[in-house]
Simulated scan of single mutants.
Amino acid sequence: MKIAVLTERADGEKRVAATPETVKKLVGLGAELAVEAGAGRAASSEDAAYEAAGARVGDRAGVLAGADAVLGVQGPDPASLAGAKPGAWVVAMLNPFGARERVDGYAAAGLEALAMEFMPRITRAQSMDVLSSQSNLAGYKAVLDAAAEYGRAFPMMMTAAGTVSAARVFVMGVGVAGLQAIATARRLGAVVSATDVRSATREQILSLGAKPIFVEGVAGIEGEGAGGYAGETSPEYQRAQAELVSSHIAKQDIVITTALIPGRPAPRLVSDAQLASMRPGSVVVDLAVEQGGNVEGAVAGQVVERHGVRIVGHRNVPSRLAADASALYARNLFNFLSAFWDKEQGRPVLPDGDEIGDAVRLTRGGQVVSARLLQ
């Protein structure tokens, strides 16, 4: 089986879908690896390292020629995959809801598109969960980005000249990114609080040494919600949460928002009026800015200022830690491919009726087959 690893062409994308480590493992399974020249350079993986691991490095056309599978980070343009075999797998984060025309293009080209972000959150798929691995790094980096913009220190400092108060950090949305943001802010010495619409996250917040901020007396979402994500709450809950957040956010120095609902615009968590209540010099980091943003006034790809508050809206935050993000993502892909590897056929096989295969497969036989997209 020939597996092609391409250089990412999306603006600002520095990650790569395979590292020399995972190339060596795939070669060990019996695969032939072809890597586009320069594919890993921005993620600190040079061509020579790929060659030493057993891959052939070449131009895009040569890498794609006769490929049985194409590995990517962001979904490649279907028109750019000429040379791959009919029925070849395209394994990447394909943004199925936001880039439906591209998914249709894979179907028209006779390619089998496998969306890694549709990986079900079940026990046997944990090692393949690209959203968790990338969100973990995004939560960490969000705190560092906040610290870079914040004009004061994070920890309490007692000096001969007086005491510096600890920064107060409020994390909104306690998924993988939010939990890592809490842990990182705590390590830096901040006083941390957090909130979520899922009542089950209260214990997680406490376990990390942060203060849970929850609406009392109005039912939110019990448990984890579908796929580990929060769903939409009632108007009554939204009003109560807005009142609670307004009273709390005015006392905070840094706010980090992480709330997403798959297939829908990000929920609005912080209003312009709430920003105005924060003291000048405060910082808000919106990790959902590319899906519409949790924060009113956030601009994707920019750091803007409103009412003296700096709003950080970096795009593609995991790519800002390209080497580590690539290492984790590449392992996710290897774990996925190796879990379904058929030694007799010398390639991975996704059986019909398998929970993982049925979840990630978007196209097959010239048609869109994903139940989530067809709904």
Rank of each mutant, 00 (worst) to 15 (best):
I3G: 06
L6Y: 06
G12D: 12
R15E: 05
A18E: 01
T19Q: 06
T22Q: 14
K24P: 00
L26M: 12
G28R: 10
E32A: 08
L33T: 02
E36A: 10
A37W: 00
A43P: 00
A43C: 01
S44Y: 09
E46S: 04
A53N: 07
R60E: 08
V63R: 09
V63C: 05
A67P: 03
V70Q: 13
A79W: 00
S80E: 10
S80G: 07
L81W: 06
G83Y: 11
A84D: 11
P86H: 12
W89V: 05
V91Q: 07
E101F: 02
G105Y: 03
F118K: 00
Q134F: 05
Q134M: 13
N136V: 02
A138M: 06
D145A: 13
A147K: 13
E149F: 04
A153I: 12
A161E: 08
G162M: 04
G162Y: 07
A167R: 10
V169C: 09
V171E: 08
V174Y: 11
V174F: 04
G178I: 02
L179R: 09
L188D: 10
S199P: 05
T201P: 01
T201K: 12
L206G: 15
S207G: 12
A210G: 11
I213L: 14
I213S: 09
G217N: 13
E224N: 11
E224R: 10
E224M: 10
Y229F: 13
G231R: 09
S234D: 05
E236V: 05
Y237K: 07
A240G: 09
Q241E: 11
I254C: 14
V255Y: 07
T258H: 02
L260W: 04
G263M: 04
R264I: 00
A266S: 15
A266K: 05
P267H: 13
S271T: 15
Q274W: 03
L275C: 10
A276E: 10
M278F: 12
P280Q: 09
G281D: 09
S282N: 11
V295C: 14
E296Q: 15
V303H: 15
I311D: 12
V312G: 14
A322P: 07
L328F: 12
F340Q: 05
G357P: 12
G357E: 02
V360W: 07
V360C: 11
R364C: 02
R364Q: 11
G365F: 06
G365K: 13
